[in-house]
Design a protein around this nucleic acid. Structure first.
Lengths: 263, 263
DNA sequence: AATGCAATTCCGAATTTCGGAACAAAAATG
DNA sequence: CATTTTTGTTCCGAAATTCGGAATTGCATT
């Protein structure tokens, strides 16, 4: 039994400091950390230096402040967000934004979870921005449904074995419902998320079927419910499907080139 | 003397493990770590769990392996968002939880209404969790009273002009009573909510007085009535007051740094 | 120079980590 | 299905580290 041990653990305070550095990159001094976290200057100093030595933070150019370390970005890069994927799909995503003015993103199956790989938003300040790297719940997100609908039983079972979160009043997490939802996706070719993650926000997604028939990615568009699900929905779906087909070839090629490179 | 101190620092071994996890995401077991780094199983176990607790790693879906945690990617992609309020107050709220084991949250005055800005719960049982963004009724919530007690007449009049909801048998919405309640807050320095929002649930709250004397935030603790209002109430208040003082400085500082940030 | 503020070093007390050994839980095997 | 083997977890005393107050150094500004 996993105890309800809520203790922050040995890294807790390091993480607090790191969060702070991430929140004010390049502008946070030792004194600031000390004040904000109510730590003695000595302690703040030690924690900060520890982070620097670990490569998670580094001293900013001016010298009197800190920002995130090289190692941190490298670690993330190593797995989640393959650069070439972003490079490849970026132009296509941007085209959709150009045409439709909505946030859109590409998700991918990684280790039994669905994570956002590339994301583009029409306006930088729009709060519906989808952060690359975050995980999408299998029972709610359109992009997750679009991928999961085309997995074999083993993969699906594994994904559904984890606890499925309830996020809004519209979220469902009973297996029967999820299965039927996936069946619907298979029948009509696209997935939806209607206020199941954010009240008032909707998303639509189509699978990206690779040339060999596998589905490892989904292409999604999100925005306010009324706007996304209006009478132009069929057009939107068509646009996503068309782009998905292009991406399919591009991704397959990219993977092949990449393999050849590292071999 | 650019101390080329090559000592790995306190985080060194944690980082070694993290690198390994990043190299084989979703496929690295405890035993692997132990073997590869030549660490005793016990030590590998402790390090791994420490990373998990810090959110840098997590157990993979299958359960018998580890991969990178979401917090990592979130840190890297932390745009200059406005969740610096959460970043700043998070550790302090968590400290209260650690000490008292009750849900606590920070509310804020926004457009004449009181809304929940940051919320932390002792564990992930969803009951008792306070959703950020929801509004707190001025005539019932402790956190709302704590803020409203220190507003000028115009702001107060505006807030009391809206319809004041009756939610439980204990809710009062006559203006005279609300005024007297606010007077009480001013006299003793804290506000209460005794079953006025949920039958059997109570909350206590103190204002966060910014260095310039303004009150825009309140710090609150909530839980079962019997537990919150028991003989240790004075201690709880003291804890909230102390944290409130710290938050006051931290919030002011945060605003200042943010200004200087991208300049 | 002189002053004020931020960053750093020093160091004893206190807490934590450390890892061997025992224990529990799964897989693998017969 | 019983047994063995492997893998993950808990316990606990010894050892090492962190902790943070006080004093010191470094760096701007006047």
């Amino acid at each position: 039994m996993t105890t309800d041990d809520a203790s922050p653990g040995p890294l807790g305070r390091y993480m607090d400091v790191l969060e702070l550095v991430a929140a004010f990159p390049g502008a946070l001094t030792l004194g600031d950390v000390s004040s904000m976290l109510a730590l003695p200057k000595t302690t703040a100093h030690r924690l900060l230096k520890g982070l620097v030595k670990a490569g998670l933070a580094r001293e900013a150019v001016g010298g009197r402040a800190y920002d995130l370390g090289e190692r941190l970005t490298r670690l993330v890069h190593a797995t989640v967000d393959d650069d070439w994927l972003a490079t490849l799909s970026g132009p296509h995503l941007r085209q959709i934004i150009e045409d439709w003015g909505e946030t859109c993103y590409l998700t991918r199956l990684a280790g039994g979870r669905i994570v956002v790989a590339v994301s583009q938003s029409p306006d930088v300040r729009w709060r519906g921005y989808v952060q690359p790297g975050i995980e999408m719940p299998v029972n709610a997100a359109a992009s997750a449904k679009a991928i999961m609908a085309y997995q074999d039983d083993a993969t699906l079972a594994q994904a559904l074995a984890q606890p499925l979160p309830i996020v809004t009043a519209n979220t469902r997490n009973d297996l029967a419902w999820v299965e039927s939802e996936l069946q619907t996706v298979r029948e009509r070719g696209y997935a939806t998320c209607i206020g199941e993650i954010d009240e008032g926000l909707a998303a639509i997604a189509v699978p990206v079927t690779l040339p060999d028939g596998m589905v490892l990615h989904a292409l999604a568009m999100t925005g306010p419910l009324q706007r996304i699900m209006n009478e132009r929905l069929p057009e939107r779906i068509d646009a996503l499907v068309a782009t998905s087909a292009v991406l399919s070839k591009a991704l397959a090629l990219g993977a092949k080139i990449r393999e050849r490179g590292t071999a």
